[in-house]
Design a binder for these strands. Structure first.
Lengths: 144, 144
DNA sequence: TTGGGCACTTACCAAAAGGTGCATACTTGT
DNA sequence: ACAAGTATGCACCTTTTGGTAAGTGCCCAA
């Protein structure tokens, strides 16, 4: 409440120390976060992962309907990549009207768990986020 | 070790229950995760966020050098979006040779914290991830 | 005087991501 | 007989994203 709140003083109260470090290591990745991002980049992957995580083995059609607005092409494509990356397991029952379902591998499940905080964050701050987005739309639509 | 391990039995041992739910709510978002993704989508945003989180207020040039391989265009662009989304705060000291730094807002900091598990996941599973990527490269280079 | 650093900005382009729609092979429901 | 559902595959095209390179205004050091 003093005159100068431009600096650390008041922020220090709300913002804890720097957040843990992001071990800058091995192969071609600058850090763990980087590695993770390579695997979950893609408009639908986190959502797919998360959805499968919640429902257990999930049939293709269910996913399709659940992840609203995703096209077949995209869904299949992302599922293949997730499978190739060892995050999901595809089970084809080789039945006459095709039946296939997808489930998480242990690796995939661990990633899904790491996604939980992001999900919570979104839920908690959804109001802020949607406000910001609304404003953007307003300008894009109305004035410049 | 029995004959049929196609179903829940053995998975149940390693894979805990379905992971918490992803409250499907309000505006145009299907769930919290969706909302979060709208805000951190972009090749460099999580990295920028994370870097600023670790270093406290960071000058433009430092970021530029830290987030290796990012171009001016991209860095600026993503910083502007992060700022517009209320995650980072830009401070312009209006000095003669320009001096500007970026820090996290409380909102940004909370997001950065939610990113920590992803970072840890990447660190822990970096071996798996890089193996998979190496295999991909192998085919892209050699066969097919 | 030339060169470099600072924090950007702009124009132009290539690549990646994503969307639409049609096709398949077979079955079940009307 | 015909439509619909099942899990994809494929061709084509648009949008989005990201990269390169050059420029800006100002100051300091060589």
């Amino acid at each position: 409440m003093s005159s100068d709140l431009s600096e650390p003083t008041f922020l220090a109260a709300q913002i804890p120390p720097p957040v843990q470090s992001c071990t800058p290591s091995l192969p071609g990745f600058t850090c763990g976060l980087d590695a993770t991002l390579r695997v979950i980049a893609g408009k639908w992957k986190p959502l797919i992962l998360y959805f499968v995580a919640q429902g257990g083995p999930t049939r293709y059609g269910e996913l399709r309907r659940a992840v609203r607005d995703v096209s077949d092409k995209m869904l299949i494509q992302q599922l293949k990549e997730l499978e190739a990356d060892g995050l999901v397991k595809r089970t084809d029952y080789k039945e006459v009207p095709p039946r296939v379902d997808y489930s998480l591998t242990p690796l995939g499940h661990s990633l899904a768990e790491a996604l939980v905080p992001l999900c919570s964050w979104g839920t908690e701050h959804m109001a802020d986020v949607s406000r910001v987005f609304a404003e953007r739309e307003t300008w894009n639509t109305k004035g410049r």
